[in-house]
Simulated assay, not measured.
Amino acid sequence: MNIFVFTGYLLSQPKLIKIKHQNFCYMLVSLNNLFDNISNIKIKAFAKGKIAKQIFDSYKEKNSLVIESSIYIKKISFLNKNKKKSKIVFVKIHKIQNIDT
């Protein structure tokens, strides 16, 4: 398992989905990029179970956070004339802490 700890802020309000008595929470997070002149990186993050419920209840858009997670990269192929393949970065949240006081 890859452990990925980063600071960032929420770009979207967390969305809670319940499937078969299991909570899932999805959101868009901006990863702060301090080293290059490249803009911040946008990552799709998700959580499940008690952590998903905690995130949905506690956090709002523009909150600054420290997130401990696992990172996944999924390859997606598009069904068009170019037959392009793309990679999407997903983050599964294990722990989350608010920076704002």
Rank of each mutant, 00 (worst) to 15 (best):
M1L: 05
N2M: 11
I3P: 02
I3N: 04
F6Q: 04
T7R: 12
T7M: 09
T7N: 15
T7P: 05
G8M: 09
G8L: 12
Y9F: 15
Y9D: 13
L11R: 10
S12Y: 10
S12P: 11
S12V: 04
Q13P: 01
P14R: 09
P14Q: 12
P14T: 07
P14Y: 06
P14M: 09
K15G: 08
L16H: 03
L16F: 12
L16M: 09
L16T: 01
I17Q: 08
K20Y: 07
K20L: 06
K20G: 02
H21Q: 09
H21T: 01
Q22R: 10
N23L: 01
F24E: 00
C25Q: 00
C25P: 02
M27W: 05
M27F: 11
V29K: 00
S30D: 06
S30K: 15
N33K: 08
N33L: 09
L34F: 14
L34N: 14
L34T: 14
F35M: 10
F35A: 12
N37W: 14
N37E: 15
I38A: 13
N40V: 04
I41R: 10
K42G: 04
K44Y: 03
A45E: 00
A45W: 10
A45Y: 05
A45N: 07
F46K: 03
A47G: 09
K48H: 14
K48Q: 10
G49T: 07
I51D: 00
I51N: 00
I51L: 03
A52R: 10
A52L: 02
A52D: 01
K53T: 07
K53F: 14
Q54E: 03
Q54M: 07
Q54T: 09
I55C: 03
I55Q: 04
F56P: 00
S58K: 07
S58P: 05
K60N: 14
K60F: 13
E61A: 08
E61F: 11
E61I: 15
E61Y: 08
S64E: 03
S64Q: 12
L65S: 12
L65K: 12
I67N: 07
I67G: 13
I67H: 09
I67W: 04
E68D: 09
E68M: 13
S70A: 11
I71L: 13
I71W: 14
Y72S: 04
Y72L: 11
Y72F: 15
I73L: 15
K74G: 07
K75R: 11
K75L: 15
K75Q: 13
I76G: 00
I76K: 05
S77V: 11
S77P: 03
F78G: 08
F78P: 06
N80F: 13
N80K: 03
K81R: 11
K81M: 05
K81A: 06
K83V: 09
K83C: 06
K84N: 13
K84R: 08
K85A: 14
K85T: 11
S86C: 08
K87R: 04
K87P: 04
K87H: 14
K87W: 06
I88Y: 12
I88G: 10
V89I: 15
V89Q: 05
V91F: 02
V91Q: 04
V91W: 02
K92L: 08
I93E: 04
H94C: 07
H94W: 10
H94M: 07
H94G: 05
I96Q: 02
Q97T: 03
Q97F: 03
N98P: 02
N98G: 03
N98L: 11
I99T: 07
D100Q: 05
T101Y: 09
T101S: 06
